[in-house]
Nucleic acid binder design. Sequence first.
RNA 1: CGGGGCGUAGCGUAGCCCGGUUAUCGCGCCUGGUUUGGGACCAGGAGGUCGCAAGUUCGAAUCUUGCCGCCCCGACCA
Length: 492
Amino acid sequence: MSKVLTSRSEDYSQWYNDLVIKGELADYSAVRGCMVIKPYGFALWENMRDQLDKMFKATGHVNAYFPLFVPKSLFEAEEKNAEGFAKECAIVTHYRLKADPNNKGKLMVDPEAKLEEELVVRPTSEAIIWNTYKNWIQSYRDLPILVNQWANVVRWEMRTRLFLRTAEFLWQEGHTAHATKEEAIEETTKMLDVYAEFVEHYMAVPVVKGVKTESERFAGAEDTYCIEALMQDGKALQAGTSHFLGQNFAKAFEVQYLTKENKQEYVWATSWGVSTRLIGALIMAHSDDQGLILPPRIAPTQVVIVPIYKGEESKPVIDGKVKEITQSLSALGIRHKYDNSDQVRPGWKFAEYELKGIPVRIALGLRDLENNVVEIARRDTGEKTTVSIDNLANHISQLLEEIQQSIFEKALSFRNNNIRKVDTWDEFVQTLDEKAGFISAHWDGTSETEEKIKEKTKATIRCIPLNNTQEEGKCILTGNPSKQRVLFARAY
RNA sequence: CGGGGCGUAGCGUAGCCCGGUUAUCGCGCCUGGUUUGGGACCAGGAGGUCGCAAGUUCGAAUCUUGCCGCCCCGACCA
């Protein structure tokens, strides 16, 4: 069988879909906008999830789980949050089906089973969680609360794309409660740093840390911090957000605590999340026309071994040698797979594992064994080398590190080469159309201007980078004075 | 919701304009054999509500009407 991928230059969107489907990460499902995450895709998510979970725990957080359903009255308590999500909510109105008298063998919603109060399927959990925190918090001694949950959420998006925007998606959402504003802000930026560290160090995707403008802010937040990544087609992707929620939810849900001085104060809040969308970022940041390229630190399989048999009698010889190799790989904790399936030939396996993005392939036949060597192929560069079997595991271990670095460096230089400083409107429009990427430009700071730029060019302000250089300039659209450049891009 | 495209075997498709025996081809699948250093070959075989419904007709994958679903582009969004 040949699995031909659409090339990036031919049709970028189709290339992306082909990678997801033919790389067996996910499938379309019978439910509009919802996907099936297949075992290979889920193994990738598990590696990402497990690493993030470790990092959350290392920063003092614990996991909990809250209900999928949010009573409408709770959902609407924080007005801005409710308003922001209202347009994309799935709502449960009934709790029973019955046989349809007019349509044999079919079921209908039982009109007598209408719920007293509708339940919103969570698009995010602030409401149900803050309603709960109300019961957990009385005193400053109860603070901080540092809770994370791994969950699914539903947002009824008009247009969906595999991993990037599905109606149901998996994510984690951290929800913390603090005694002071300073502590909450510190938490917000700390978790942003955790995200940036994870995405860069493990996913090998460089990010820009920044703050969202008012119009791009999370509904109900005082400030939204974000990490923004650049995809190979020059479009930006929001890879994670961390929100400083101020006292908005505490006030909406009447969550107060007693200070040491016996005074009632509202609690300060944060929330932060990353989702399965990260998998989309990973795919679009690194992969090529041959398939996925996965960074070793999160690849489900880091090394695949393909035997080249020559006649029946070669099988036990090669299998025996491979057993030694796999033992030495296991000893170093390297995730590996030996594919000695007789169903397909080596060439087929080579192509298949390239499509799957396995970082390193080892091939060996009798010819190699005579010389005590194997052939090693790197997925990221396609480079093949012949190396000695002695000390192979150590060599592989180093190679995996090198690949991890190399993938990151490549993405980093692509990203850096695609941040362009622009000072005039004409140049801005031209750059967007010809080169895409991030554009660093002056903006007068108003939502009106931001909106006009979006209308005219489809470019949005991705973020105001943290620790941004302050410099005098003129807004590219209005010419009004500006104190700093912000990052624009067309985005997913 | 607007614009475009598509729905025929597990997947990809021909046939449709111009209605006519048994619906085309490739991949995959099953059986047997030969193979294995970049997506093997030979022989035999199985597999179909032609998206759904109604209509026109002696006869519908093909014509008409309605409906449903999916993908892409846009508005919306992590």
